[in-house]
Structure formats: structure tokens, C-alpha cells
Write a protein that binds this DNA or RNA. Sequence first.
DNA 1: TTGTTATTACGAAAGCTTTCGTATATAATT
DNA 2: AATTATATACGAAAGCTTTCGTAATAACAA
Lengths: 132, 132
Amino acid sequence: MQKPTNGELEILRLLWQESPATVRQINDRINANRRKGQKEVGYTTTLKLMQIMADKDLVSRTREGKTHLYSPNISEAESQQALVDRLLETAFQGSAMKLVMKALGSSQSSPQELDEIRRYLDQLSDEKSSDR
Amino acid sequence: MQKPTNGELEILRLLWQESPATVRQINDRINANRRKGQKEVGYTTTLKLMQIMADKDLVSRTREGKTHLYSPNISEAESQQALVDRLLETAFQGSAMKLVMKALGSSQSSPQELDEIRRYLDQLSDEKSSDR
DNA sequence: TTGTTATTACGAAAGCTTTCGTATATAATT
DNA sequence: AATTATATACGAAAGCTTTCGTAATAACAA
């Protein structure tokens, strides 16, 4: 499985939200998300991109009457993991800690979320002390 | 300040480790990091890239005898923050928590690091409860 | 049937990043 | 001074992603 480009990632995100979907649906949603002043993406542009993604096996498609229905071939979780791993390697010298701090610092997480992270940390610590 | 490309980011990383540096030094280190079988990057390739970066104001340079000395114009912290923010937006719908969990899950952090993150979480919680 | 509309297929242009060859300048060496 | 080595400047090619025009196809309506 290969690394999706930016354009491909945008389409994958939409497919993760709702799939299967037609090219028309995806293209409409892409343009709905465009902020004012930004040029619209042509239908055939989206079509071509999705055809290429099918070639690369990033998505699969089935004929449904006149149109094609597309579904993602990689899960969101899988892809998030790959993105995080790459960011860790390229920008944080593999230090998850530094990345975590930057992520927490920038966004306002709720106390509940912080608690959940604590629980996860505890779980990790437990695994470490018992895995031998 | 604009978003660095992949190649530019590689050079910035090296400059963050040690600057100022010459094109020769950077190019040598780029090739030293190349894993076996991977084609070497030509000197003029690196030169051109660094010239472009100077045009874009990603780096600044001063003449030093025959050569140029390059320094980064953005800090590592600043750039890491930008990368994390972008990843948060594009791949995690803004949920720092999900990103944090993925980051922690993939890499083996030491118990010390996990503790440090706990302290940081506590600090964040304190700020929340006292900032009104 | 005939015309209209929506879809796919596909080649090629446009745009951006990376790579490289060549010319030119500058310093060091013999 | 002549040669050699190393640097910069720069245009252009190579490679990849994105965009678009056009043609072929299928469904639908008049």
C-alpha cells in the first residue's frame, strides 16, 4: 500500500465519513468544503483522481447501473497511524513525547480527554512492567 | 512563511541540528543518511534547493570567503507546531486525543517519558481549573 | 427514433518539486 | 602563471500530481 497524495487523502477522508460514494457525490462535497474565493474542482478532475486511486488500489469500485460506487481500501485508523509514524520520523526524531506535547499544547482538550489519556498512559506502563 | 516541501524539510532538519552550515556539509550529511542502494543526491541538487529556500526566506545566508553559510529562518519548535496542527486538521478532525494515542501506541516510549507526559497533563489540568 | 443528460475513459496540458549539466568565478597548488 | 579543485548561478530536463478538454457510452425523455 502506498502513500496517498494530498488530493487522494482528501478523497479518502470523505470516503471514511461515508462510503460507498459516487464520483458526483465526492466532487460535490469537495466543492462544498471549498472556502469562498477558492476555485471549484471540476468533475472530471475528481473522476480522474479516483480512477488513479483505483489503479493504485487505494479504493475499490463496483459498477452500479450507470455509475461506479467507490469504497476505501485502507482504514482511517491504519492511515492515521502511517501519517503519525511518518511525522514522528521526519520531524520529531522518533520522539513520541515531543509530538504528544505539541499536540496537547495546541488544542484545548477537555478534562475528560486528558483523563482518558492518563488511563491510556497507565495501561502502557502496566504492559511494560509485565511483558517479560 | 510558507510550507516547506519534503526536500526542504530534510535540509531544515539538518540545519536545526547544526547551523550555520555550508551546502557541502549539508549535502554530505544528506548522503550519509541515505540507506544503501539509495541513489546519492548530487551536490548541485542540494545547492539549488538551498538557493530556492533562500529565495523563499526559509533560510538566510551570509558569504564567508568562498562559500555561503546557511541558517534556518524558522525554529524547529515553530515548524513542528505547524506540522502537528496541519495533521490534526486534515487527518484527525482536530482531535488531539486521537493523535496522541496513535503517537504513543506506535513508539516505545520509556517510563521516564511517560512520566513526563503525566506531569505535563497535570500541568494542563491545573491551568484549566485555575484560569477563571 | 431522436435528442438530451450524466457518466466513464483517456490523453495531454499545467504546475510544482527535484535533479542535473554546464558555465562562470574564486581560491589554492604547483 | 598555469593548473587544479571547489563554489555559485542558472536553465532545463525529469518526475510527480492535479486539472481539463474531448470523445465514447449508457440511460432517459420527448
